[in-house]
Design a protein around this nucleic acid. Structure first.
Lengths: 183, 183
DNA sequence: CTGATACCGAACAAAGTGTTCTATATCGAA
DNA sequence: TTCGATATAGAACACTTTGTTCGGTATCAG
């Protein structure tokens, strides 16, 4: 990719996230973004179709990082042959913690809606494969959706409660999630 | 309240919900709303400050209905003196089911964000009082927030799965919610 | 009946959107 | 280093949307 494009793209992302820290997504105009990013109007539209497109691209950037597999690390399995869900989740939480400064602003208000949707799409891949038949009393589609929004909202909560570590948050999530069979 | 105001207000709500069935909140203009409601521009702004204000008012209208106490029905308590949470929730779900046609459109996309926020604010009142010390292993603020988003998202899911009854949905919720002590 | 008030509809300034154009600067590859 | 390709700046453009104002008309409540 051309260095010029990369520089522009970064400048836009920087300006956008900075603005999201101070005001809501809907009230941010393209004008403000390009002023802050110090680029021309036509340049912006050469990169992104609309403001929504920009948000989508930014989320994609973040998730590509968050869901990147550890270098040289295969999905692990425990002794019973099931995937190590806890390990995967903690791994994701670590990366999210690193990106906190980018994410916190997005999660406020309307833009959070879009972020959460993309986030949960990715999470379906994680949970979909790992889901056994632990809870035959619940419709599978309800259970899957439940787990993804549980984790997504847990993350959203965590972003405003800096004092907890990824491990603690992971423990909270698994303690509250409906993964074990009902007593 | 003046009949004229009431008529206008109703016409706007009707037009707004109808538009939300077909297109996203952000892409609806005030112009479309007043055209469909067949009212003058200045009239709209005499009633609502902005589009967000309209959405807020509509949500308020809906929740006033949904959370209205049954006529002459006191909050019941079971034999141990705790509030009948299951009964209250099922009651709320019934009203939500009745308002499905108004709600479904709102819940799509960005407007859902606002709806869910107001919804959860109300739910905090319901859960806050009924919460015991069942889960000392979780921070109380996390638990409270967890319960409200659980129910709110359960409702959102339900609105697109018409085949379930309020009783069934209530059962799903309580089966998945972290209310019982961990085994 | 009558005073109050809600409505209509047109006009308005202001701001934002997305496109198009030309000139300029920067890039990557030979 | 050179050179063709391409990204950018910046201005101009038509267009939509927003929120306000105002004088005239219709409808309300008492």
């Amino acid at each position: 990719m051309d260095r010029r494009q990369l520089k522009t793209r970064q400048a836009v992302f920087e300006a956008f996230t900075a603005l999201l820290e101070t005001k809501s997504y809907g009230s941010i105009s393209v004008q403000e973004i390009i002023d802050r990013a110090n680029i021309g109007r036509s340049t912006f539209y050469a990169h992104f179709e609309t403001k929504d497109d920009l948000l989508r691209a930014l989320c994609g950037e973040i998730f590509d990082h968050v869901f990147s597999p550890e270098l040289g690390r295969e999905p692990t399995h425990d002794f019973s042959g099931r995937r190590d869900l806890k390990g995967e989740i903690t791994h994701i939480l670590y990366h999210l913690g690193e990106s906190r400064s980018y994410i916190r602003g997005i999660l406020r208000r309307e833009s959070g809606e879009l972020f959460m949707r993309y986030f949960r799409e990715r999470l379906e891949g994680v949970f979909g494969g790992a889901l056994g038949e632990d809870r035959p009393d619940l419709p599978r589609e309800y259970l899957l959706r439940h787990l993804t929004w549980d984790l997504a909202e847990t993350v959203r909560w965590w972003m405003d409660h800096e004092r907890y570590t990824p491990e603690e948050v992971s423990r909270f999530f698994f303690a509250a999630a409906p993964l074990e069979p009902e007593a």
